[in-house]
Design a protein around this nucleic acid. Sequence first.
DNA 1: CGTCATATTGACTTTAGTCAATAGAAGTGG
DNA 2: CCACTTCTATTGACTAAAGTCAATATGACG
Lengths: 247, 247
Amino acid sequence: MSPMNNGPEARAIENLIRKLAQFSPLSAEERASLKALPLRLRQYARGELIVEQGSRPEESAMVVSGIAFRFKLVPDGARQIVGLQVPGDFVDLHSFVLKPIDHAVAAASPAVVGRIPHAALEKMLEKHPRLSRALMWDMAVDAAVAREWLAIMGRRSAYQQLAHLFCELYFRMDWAGQVRDRGFDFALTQAELGDACGLSTVHVNRSLQALRKDGLIGLENHTLVIPNIDALAKTAEFDPAYLHLLK
Amino acid sequence: MSPMNNGPEARAIENLIRKLAQFSPLSAEERASLKALPLRLRQYARGELIVEQGSRPEESAMVVSGIAFRFKLVPDGARQIVGLQVPGDFVDLHSFVLKPIDHAVAAASPAVVGRIPHAALEKMLEKHPRLSRALMWDMAVDAAVAREWLAIMGRRSAYQQLAHLFCELYFRMDWAGQVRDRGFDFALTQAELGDACGLSTVHVNRSLQALRKDGLIGLENHTLVIPNIDALAKTAEFDPAYLHLLK
DNA sequence: CGTCATATTGACTTTAGTCAATAGAAGTGG
DNA sequence: CCACTTCTATTGACTAAAGTCAATATGACG
């Protein structure tokens, strides 16, 4: 399937281009090169593994639809989720330069993932060296998000951590065009939320109940509704600047 | 002062070159270009601010001697340390592409820092586009360390977190040639250790006492001694692979 | 010698984790 | 479409880890 049609994969690439353009304006040729990137598409079921920890990918994967999460397994069997990716996000751009990959990636919902061979990226960068800086920028934003997570995890209550995570996801999903009626598909289990925030499932459950009782979120039918994002952002002390999603 | 002499700044650049060479072998010309990078040196006192959060640096800073730490301030005044840098490490390479910078950097001990103008980096990359990939790699390693911290912070006890942090620092300082007699200069206060691990000062104090009692560390006179790194690594379940320090 | 930062200790509180049971939902095969 | 299995969510009772507050000690330094 070519990425030049109007399917969801074209939208994902459009999202990527729109994102990279925030670093610096892209020429028509650069945009064309990005659009021409070959995407090997594949569908994943909820929970299915997309990238294996310790592998040495020859391609980098991008979320086309759905949500993916990246996680590390610690020796005693516990899991820590280190990032979430929405349509248009690379899940492992860094594997372009850093191998083996230090974490796994799995589908948080039914998802479509497109894979771009590193060789194709190399070829593109050869032709458009300036894009190299744009990819660096994308990697840097990814790292900035991880640092924000560190700050949240280290210094926030469970209640605030969850609120912050929902805010982040809301902004990113909205930017990716996935929000309608203040809500979006959200299939993460409470166990997964716990793995993202470093909390036990039971405590996640209780904190979610508190958030619901306070009218800050609605979460049912695999849909997360945030009736008042400003209110949620206020309790989470959330500032979207670190996401670098200008518009 | 030129980086071509034998001062500590030459050693720092040597460390950087040795580090980047782990990504892929560097040609003599590439090495020469790296060595020729202009370093604006400056000395900092313990605790002094090196880079201000929210600023838009036109240079990236590298630790020449001492230890620096990067931190974020959260709205209520709490602080979270998101990374430590040892001689040869960039503290804010990502500010080359990502502005404003999302965290501050301060000296954890008396330190010398060298600054490299982004313009000089750009010029070097123009001449040696392959080095662009090497810098990407360096940024990717930095991000991998942040992800490891996430996993540790989310899923480990205070005791293990501290042990893990000391292991990481030991390996990195050793690689940078700063370890003698199984110890190295270590001027972080207990409050700073708490800010790094998301712990209160009191709890850090008690956990350190436990580590001392168990004979895993010696910490006095601003010197951290690890009599048996294997034993410490075992209790911390520390695997140095994520640091990507091959030799 | 006095001041300020850092480290240590004790007493107490709070947050979050653990264990175990139950309830609901979703998915599967027949 | 139903019976069954399997996840996932929820609840209660209890425990443990870590935080808070406040006092005191120790050490560096001008």
